[in-house]
Design a protein around this nucleic acid. Sequence first.
DNA 1: TATTGTTATACTCTATAACTATA
DNA 2: TATAGTTATAGAGTATAACAATA
Lengths: 157, 157
Amino acid sequence: MVEPTRDPPGSGSPAREQPPAALSDRLGYLLGRAHMEHRSVAERALASLHLGVKEYGALSVLVEEGPLSQQRLGARQGVDRTTMVAVVDQLERNRLVARRRNPDDRRAYSLHATPAGRRALEQANQAVEGAEDEFLAGLSAADRRRLKNLLRTLIAP
Amino acid sequence: MVEPTRDPPGSGSPAREQPPAALSDRLGYLLGRAHMEHRSVAERALASLHLGVKEYGALSVLVEEGPLSQQRLGARQGVDRTTMVAVVDQLERNRLVARRRNPDDRRAYSLHATPAGRRALEQANQAVEGAEDEFLAGLSAADRRRLKNLLRTLIAP
DNA sequence: TATTGTTATACTCTATAACTATA
DNA sequence: TATAGTTATAGAGTATAACAATA
């Protein structure tokens, strides 16, 4: 295992070595490496839109399922409400999400994606799909579908 | 995205929700969820052997490729040498790895797996294979091979 | 009394910088 | 001068505890 660390802060990717043979049949190693390498491609693709993966995920859920309270938005992704504060702060600063008050419960927000937020999500989806294409370049279209279906089966409750 | 957070420190798994539809076709989300859920199963399986995933990975590489210096052992996994100190400390405390001096370069260690370390690795491999079986329970043997092969293709240099 | 959002704080993980002993 | 291992420290990320406003 030892899922390798993310790319170094300063530079680009380090000169990666050959995967250790002792680990190359371990599912944890394969999932960790794939996840890390994909994330690095996806982060680059989203950077031009000033979105991190956390913000992208939250915006996606909000556009599809909103309006939502801040706590519900976090719960949909398994993220603590205290962590959501900074994520929504960031989205609000960029005018992609608006914090309205929920008149039925004035403790909670009613978070709405703005029109600019919906447009940004469309662009971000294209960017992320481009990143997936790049990452999956070595697989046929059928294999890409197979991979996603296998993963979906694994994480289905 | 927003690869969900690892299980909470205190409790077991939180009551997970249905995956957000907006993300269920995103490769990053699928890889992140799969990786996290598998890791949680693998950590449980290794806990009875007093091994973490980092220690397991290091021991695996050392048994297969050793003897190695501490820095080389880290480099094989993309891990910084400063991070390896505590990992090898832990393995040495449990008498699974011995730090000998390399007579050709007395700055460096020559790390060796002890006989107990090799025995522990065999047990750990069985435990991790059991964890994989548990995690992959929903897939046929052919699909399990397919999944690993697809992931290997993706991360191959 | 319980809950939403917030802040302050702590904890985990990992890297960078600086030190030592060797080369 | 450079490198292996070590330590101290800093940074990112996320959680817990405590607080104000509201229920």
